[in-house]
Write a protein that binds this DNA or RNA. Structure first.
Lengths: 220, 220
DNA sequence: TGTACATCAGTGAACGCGCGTTCACTGATGTAC
DNA sequence: TGTACATCAGTGAACGCGCGTTCACTGATGTAC
């Protein structure tokens, strides 16, 4: 009881026609909590209610259950990441495109550890099932195509070769993000350099040439 | 109450001088539960008690608290992995040594997802703190040295370069194990091939040459 | 213009669950007299 | 040889916690007559 009620700021009930406002507040609060790195464990319904300053039961007026809210914000974050990668990949040269996508991916992961862990690290609240398409399948294809554009510009290789190479590169980038988040005590080199090094290895390009491209990629 | 007592097999109390037997049973049960992939969530004290067929309180006769039991089996698994890597690295050629260590690492991770996730994926029960040295620091050094033995046999490079290269290779191997465990829906190529490909890239060796070495590495 | 009423936005208390931990206890077994 | 007693191995019930979910409710506000 005491744990649920530390709403120092007493929330004002929304005016009549605007019950939907709480829905937005719930989404915002859940997104904020997911983003905050302070909590290594996964999001809970009661945390969200506390953050907004509302009774836990109030959530059911806007979402069928906690899983629905959770899946909703997961979907938002996934779309956000997809947009970031699309923007970063909008470049003329195939190599610029590849580096843009990969560096933006790692940068997003490093700057959004909570979201990344949830989207790609399997850190899901117990009892919740992911409704969505396995997120990242199309994202993986996006990356794979960009890699193929660099290592196989003529289109000589088999699609399976492209897929394997893309998958392998993605696991390495994923490992980079995951390891940095899970082992904060390690004295990590700059993430941009590490991402560039991975891309260089997987695209058989010179590391310093890639690093130049990588330096210009914007993140978030 | 009901959840704690489904001990269909009624355990017999140990005879007088052998109270220590329960300690071993607790360790075994905890190790078994950690290994079982059925439970994606982390180990609990009550699960262990249930598995052994004993009251939850009985654990306190043998361990100060749940964290002590948990750290104990973590330490066992870490030593086990260290032994596996040491054995796999006992080879004449530097390249054989490197491939042995890396392939054994990935193989152990793939075959022990629960243990791997706990040791390297930060999947720790809430409330438990890892007493140990950050596990894997010496393991990382071991891998780093093996990589340096291949890419820098003359010892021309700076130690920091070795460390960076080793760290990067480890993140990629880690990503391989983590991604395979976290995304079981993906149609993964054989883990041995993937591990070989990573090692080939990071050691600037031919992929198929590495694959030959990798084929001979025993796992577990 | 005043009043009854329906609706809306959200509440409060409880449910049952599993968790780690505590504390007083039980009952068998070896040992001392 | 028999009996009192200490010790040992483990128990049973309870504690307080946070969780997702339910259900009957409250109180303000707009609308209809």
């Amino acid at each position: 009881v005491a744990a649920d009620a530390p709403r120092d700021v007493v929330r004002k009930r929304n005016p009549r026609g605007q019950g939907g406002a709480l829905r937005e507040q719930l989404i915002d609060a859940a997104a904020r909590l997911l983003a905050s790195a302070e909590q290594p464990e996964s999001l809970t319904l009661r945390q969200v209610a506390r953050e907004v300053g509302v009774a836990p039961a109030s959530i059911y007026g806007h979402f069928a259950d906690f899983g629905a809210l959770f899946n909703h914000i997961l979907d938002l974050r996934y779309r956000e990441l997809a947009g970031v990668l699309r923007a970063a990949g909008a470049q003329a040269s195939p190599l610029g495109r590849l580096v843009g996508i990969c560096v933006a991916y790692v940068g997003w992961g490093v700057h959004h550890p909570g979201e990344y862990r949830t989207l790609f690290g399997g850190r899901i609240p117990p009892g919740v099932t992911i409704a969505d398409h396995e997120p990242g399948v199309e994202l993986l294809e996006f990356m794979t195509a960009a890699l193929a554009g660099v290592v196989d510009p003529e289109g000589c290789m088999a699609p399976e070769e492209h897929a394997e190479a893309g998958l392998l590169m993605w696991t390495s980038l994923h490992g980079l993000v995951a390891a940095r988040a899970e082992h904060p005590k390690i004295d990590w080199p700059p993430w941009r350099d590490q991402a560039a090094a991975i891309v260089a290895l997987h695209s058989a390009n010179d590391r310093h040439r890639i690093a130049e491209f990588a330096a210009n990629v914007a993140v978030q």
